[in-house]
Design a protein around this nucleic acid. Structure first.
Length: 844
RNA sequence: GCAGGAGUGGCGGAAUGGCAGACGCAGCAGACUCAAAAUCUGCCGUAGCGAUACGUGUGGGUUCAAGUCCCAUCUCCUGCACCA
């Protein structure tokens, strides 16, 4: 970093011949004055400071410290064999920078890291290589740890854990048992999402868009007996809780849409037919259109069909249609919105309870068994799907809301009720729904209801590498939880990790695991052999960081009270309707049973945009556009990588990788390294002082609002000013490296050491005090403002910031070019906005 | 279809209603070099020698002043989607 006087030895090739090691990163180059600088040697200084920080426990979070606490969290990684992705770097760098700034601001910071280490990719790799997943996992964790450390993230490594280790999953099982005890675990045989490739049952969240979340193959619907977690019980709390947290609007919206709460009514329709005395319950959000209900539609899987098999005259046609539907994948059934199909049922029909008319029942796949009751009343005049169906099948269309043209399409807007008996004349949707509801309740055939699109969480997986579900099936006592004192229920060793072709977990093949005694009656019993899904361990991991080594409780309550909630949680948009909902659900539950002190786990959520490949496409191995962060660290250094991922664009937006721009950031850091050459004992220039104070203000504010790109840009502007001035005071240099320290901690630490910054007693720059700015010094005494005539810029004037309007106007008018345009007509208006603009309005 | 977001130079992107294009990349010219690289200096929206005109997806509007506010419209991204 300093100047080495070997003028003339400036040629790299020459040096390569003469001097060993000249092509190493610490070789020399000359500037135009013939001075030779030692190159910015990141390869040497980065490991040096990483080691010093580690030895000093610089980033250790202190339980119960007097300082204000800051809990910054990033989504802990899945330790895949591929190692770190640049996406990890971008995702972690934001909270990293904020955490480092917080420490400098005097906070007690918890910025932890761990590993989400159960899951299918590891298991599949284990099968392929015939290696135990435990071995692979621990190897990958070691690899990941080295990689993360090489980037210099200021994690508190003393709190590291992995979800696949028994001392952790003991508590995952513990929470599961609590859920079980509280009636939130149940078993049901329903249609479930099943991935034929991975051979597992998937939750709704794991099969978004009809694709398996892990292998992306088409998901099929199969009737299966599975364990569910009753997340729908928490739907309202998950929705209402969103009002109390600081999440981006888009995140809240996605969760709201996914939960999909709708208010409506359940209505019972009498089923008519020879010797039939029954009702069919439907769900509707528009019970006020009941007069317009001209037919009924039930889902192909609806049980009423089998129940009246004997009465249905065209049973063959019904069966054929049902088989056709069963063959379709979820994707075909929902994504390819084509013409309506269906079959009219002969032999039974329904009675419209308010008109008394007999109306036909159809079976059609546009009605889903999984939502509402699997049956609807069709109001073709005011629902486009029902309308399309009615047109295709020749059903009657009765208008009950005025305002549209039902000869062309369904009218879904508001309007006056017609053909609707008691509702006629009402014009307000709310009133007509209320009145109809009241009427239905009086008749005893309907009541208010709420429905959610979100389904209960299918929770068991027929695979090896997950937490064993701690339940025991006893022929006498039914399903019994494993006693708490027997936790952890450890994963037994097996020879063969392959899932059984019969849809059974590999654990089912181990008699010593399966056979046990019932904890209740002591009789022979069998263990549940399925494991928990990938998302179980991550649903509470942020709590464990408060107290990661406790073997008495999942985390000490006092410590939880001290650290929780998470102050900022950064992660990907892809987790909003999976991990975020699951973990909020568990946390709300733990709050309800008094285990945690806040209902919501995360006070603030932020997200990062994707890092795209250099070609602008999403990075993927198959496209060959993947950037390996480790290579970037080797080639340019961790500080460059860290700075670049935050400088590349708006943090929340996707941006393509650019090798050239990486070099630009490297160049910036090289210029930073060269600042020590400019150090003078000269006194502070007031103009420069103002620039420095403005930069302190801007960098601080930009970091707070996650505008890292403009924070770095402000530092680049300032360094350009230093170079233009040709000198820098030690004070300014110290301020500069402090502001840059969260982004490029190694280089700035090195400079601080070089200029003797730690004389004041702090051990590290990264733990020294964050610079303060003087508001008065950020305000300029004189300002240059634009002068407009009729809104067009015609000149600019330099005036005192506090001058009067008259003085400003006079100065503006003095500009010759302005005068030229003023003379084209008569001056009718003069506008002066101090510090901003002068505008003369001329008519002529 | 519904919800959320975005359209600004060759590129990534800046702009509390107040000088559009900060900062970076690429590019061009110059300095240094036998030369190249690196580094340094300057230029860099379009048209024009210039004054100037035109420029933030498109069309309107509000305003002394609009990338920013309002209305309409197109396109793209993300999520949900025959949800009754």
């Amino acid at each position: 970093m300093g100047i080495v006087d070997i003028t003339g030895f400036c040629d790299r090739i020459y040096l390569a011949q003469k001097c060993p090691g000249a092509n190493e990163p610490d070789s020399y180059h000359s500037d135009r004055k013939g001075r030779v600088h030692m190159r910015y040697n990141f390869a040497k200084i980065e490991p040096k400071w990483q080691k010093k920080w580690e030895e000093a426990n610089a980033f250790k979070a202190v339980d119960f410290s007097e300082k204000p606490k800051f809990y910054g969290l990033v989504e802990f990684p899945y330790p895949s064999g591929a190692g770190m992705h640049v996406g990890h770097i971008k995702a972690y760098s934001s909270v990293e920078v904020i955490s480092r700034k917080r420490r400098m601001q005097g906070y007690n910071v918890l910025f932890p890291i761990g590993f989400d280490s159960f899951g299918l990719p590891t298991e599949n790799y284990a099968i392929k290589t015939n290696t135990h997943p435990h071995i692979i996992t621990e190897k990958n964790i070691a690899h990941f740890t080295d990689q993360l450390k090489s980037v210099g993230f200021s994690f508190d490594w003393s709190r590291e854990f992995a979800t696949s280790r028994p001392d952790y999953y003991k508590w995952t099982q513990w929470i599961f048992l609590k859920l079980f005890e509280n009636g939130l675990v149940f078993r049901a045989k329903t249609l479930v999402n099943y991935c034929p490739h991975c051979k597992v049952v998937l939750s709704n969240e794991d099969s978004q868009g009809g694709k398996c979340d892990i292998c992306h193959s088409d998901v099929v619907q199969l009737p299966k007996d599975v364990w569910y977690l009753r997340i729908t019980e928490y739907a309202d709390k998950l929705l209402d809780g969103l009002d109390t947290v600081d999440y981006p609007e888009s995140v809240k919206q996605q969760e709201v849409t996914w939960i999909g709460r709708s208010y409506g009514a359940f209505v019972n329709f009498k089923v008519a037919g020879e010797g039939v005395d029954d009702t069919l319950e439907i769900y509707t959000t528009r019970c006020d259109t009941l007069y317009g209900a001209t037919f009924m539609v039930v889902a192909p899987e609806h049980p009423i069909l089998d129940k009246y098999k004997d009465k249905i005259a065209n049973w063959d046609a019904v069966t054929a249609y049902r088989e056709e539907c069963a063959k379709k994948t979820e994707f075909e059934r929902t994504q390819l919105v084509k013409d309506k199909t269906g079959v009219k049922i002969d032999g039974i029909c329904c009675v419209n309870p308010i008109t008394g008319k007999n109306i036909p029942i159809f079976i059609a796949d546009y009605v889903m068994m999984g939502y509402g009751t699997g049956a609807i009343m069709a109001v073709p005049a005011h629902d486009q799907r029902d309308y399309d169906f009615a047109k295709a099948f020749g059903a009657e269309i009765i208008e009950v809301i005025k305002g549209g043209d039902i000869s062309k399409e369904a009218y879904t807007g508001d309007g006056e009720m017609v053909n609707s008996g008691i509702l006629n004349g009402l014009t307000n949707k709310k009133d007509s729904i209320a009145k109809m509801l009241e009427h239905l309740e009086e008749m005893g055939i309907g009541h208010k209801g709420v429905q959610y699109k979100m389904k209960d969480w299918a929770f068991n997986r027929q695979r090896y590498w997950g937490e064993p579900i701690p339940l025991i099936h006893c022929p006498q006592c039914g399903t019994v939880g494993v006693p708490y004192e027997d936790l952890p229920l450890e994963l037994p060793d097996v020879e063969n990790f392959e899932p059984g072709t019969d849809g059974q977990s590999p654990l089912a093949r181990i008699p010593s695991f399966v056979n046990c005694t019932c904890p209740k009656c002591g009789g022979p019993a069998k263990r549940e052999t399925d494991t928990m899904p990938q998302w179980a361990g991550s649903s509470w991991y942020f709590l464990r960081f408060a107290d990661p080594h406790n073997d008495q409780v999942f985390a000490d309550k006092k410590k939880l009270e001290y650290w929780m909630p998470v102050d900022q949680y950064n992660g990907g948009m892809e987790h909003v309707t999976r991990h975020m909902l699951y973990s909020r659900f568990w946390h709300h539950f733990l709050y309800d049973i008094g285990e945690v002190n806040t209902p919501e786990p995360y006070a603030k959520r932020t997200y990062q945009g994707l890092v795209l490949g250099p070609d602008g496409d999403k990075m993927s191995k198959s496209k060959g556009n993947v950037i390996d962060p480790v290579e970037i660290v080797d080639q340019y250094g961790a500080d460059t990588l860290r700075t670049y991922v935050l400088f590349m664009g708006d943090y929340g937006s996707a941006a393509p990788w650019s090798d050239e721009s990486v070099k630009g950031c490297k160049r910036f850091l090289e210029r930073v390294a060269g600042l020590t050459d400019l150090m003078t004992a000269a006194s502070e220039d007031p103009e420069m002082e103002s620039k420095v104070h403005k930069t302190i203000k801007k960098v601080g504010a930009d970091i707070e609002s996650m505008k890292f790109n403009t924070a770095i840009a402000a530092l680049m502007t300032l360094i350009n000013d230093f170079y233009k001035a040709g000198s820098i005071t030690k004070y300014d240099l110290t301020v500069f490296i402090k502001l840059l320290s969260p982004f490029a901690p190694h280089l700035t630490e090195e400079i601080w050491e070089e200029i003797g910054g730690n004389e004041s007693g702090e051990d590290f720059l990264t733990l020294s005090a964050w610079p303060e700015y003087d508001e008065a010094k950020t305000v300029d005494a004189t300002v240059t403002i634009g002068v407009q005539v009729n809104g067009k810029l015609r000149g600019s004037v330099k005036i005192p910031a506090d001058c009067t309007k008259e003085e400003a106007l006079e100065a503006g008018k003095a500009d010759p070019n302005v005068q030229k345009f003023l003379s084209t007509g008569t001056l009718v208006k003069e506008i002066y906005v101090p510090g901003k603009i002068l505008n003369f309005v001329v008519k002529g």
